[in-house]
Write a protein that binds this DNA or RNA. Structure first.
Lengths: 166, 166
DNA sequence: CTTGGAATGTCAACAAGGCTGACATAAGCT
DNA sequence: AGCTTATGTCAGCCTTGTTGACATTCCAAG
């Protein structure tokens, strides 16, 4: 830790081997990261796609279908299939927009919020343990690298959500 | 943002909002992270699963199917389909084990190594840019949190690969 | 030595969740 | 009135995950 000297740093942390380890760390960490919600959802008729929809509807209640599409980066047909089952099952409500009646605004029902809670509790528990173990300074670095890795469009979406969370 | 004082740090970096931002950062970053290879592979008849197989065969030439299975965390049937097409297309060679003839040892052909190079160049370029932008200290934190996030089994696999790379 | 179980790999069939294309409807905008 | 936007739907395809059934090979117990 502490501060290794600056000159050797700038040479060594960008080697192909370092980069490859970062790539592999992303792969393994992401597998673990998604495994808890996946396990919970496996029993129900839902999958990761449902989780993502539920997460972002909870995060930005009243969001439109179009907005959700741009966040998730999938096609409307793909999202629609997921949304339809969530609405049928009473986890999500879709309300026609007041100002613009073409839009549908999406909200979680109590039932939807309950599932969201279970899923995000599991995911946060893992994240909390990792944060705690690695420490505050590491967390700052973690977030900085992830943000730098995002495509500009994704970074904007991410930034807007950060604002939302106050 | 400068340095908030130490005592408040240990309290504040584990709030639900902080954790949620970490979760969302993982989602957005991983989307971007996989987008370059995905784009390259879209034209060929391959997908992300092929990329993963190629990556790890390149990383540990001569690895067995079973070993690859435990790294990738999928079923042997799933891996086998991917492997079959890669072998048919002459990107991967499969040799029956000498000691144990049940095993197949996997190697990239020149053609396979060529594709691996293109894919990992693209992925490394993104990682390099992110590392460079965030700086060496951030990279240390990034890797620490990712490693802490992994399931123990994944962490072991990751650790073994790190050794391999010397 | 034989035989039964374990390890390894293959084939077939199915499901989730991406994708594209075509099209319908309603509502807003010029 | 006519173009554009937002949404939803149907149909069909692809990748990549799953299980089940089965063949081959190895090894160890009897």
């Amino acid at each position: 830790m502490a501060e290794p000297n600056r000159s050797s740093d700038t040479l060594l942390f960008l080697t192909d081997e370092q980069l490859r380890q970062g790539i592999e760390a992303m792969f393994f960490a992401y597998s673990s990261f998604t495994s808890d919600p996946d396990r919970i959802l496996a029993d129900m008729a839902y999958g990761r796609a449902h989780h993502r929809a539920i997460h972002f509807i909870n995060r930005a209640p009243g969001t439109t279908v179009n907005n959700l599409l741009s966040i998730l980066g999938v096609t409307k047909q793909s999202l629609n299939r997921v949304l339809r089952t969530l609405i049928e099952d009473g986890l999500v409500e879709s309300h026609v927009g007041k100002a613009d009646k073409r839009e549908r605004h999406l909200y979680l029902t109590d039932k939807g919020r309950a599932l969201e809670g279970v899923l995000s509790d599991a995911q946060r528990a893992r994240m909390r343990a990792a944060y705690k173990y690695a420490g505050p300074d590491a967390v700052v670095g973690f977030r900085a690298v992830l943000e730098a890795m995002m495509d500009p469009e994704m970074r904007r979406a991410y930034g807007r959500l950060k604002e939302t969370g106050k």
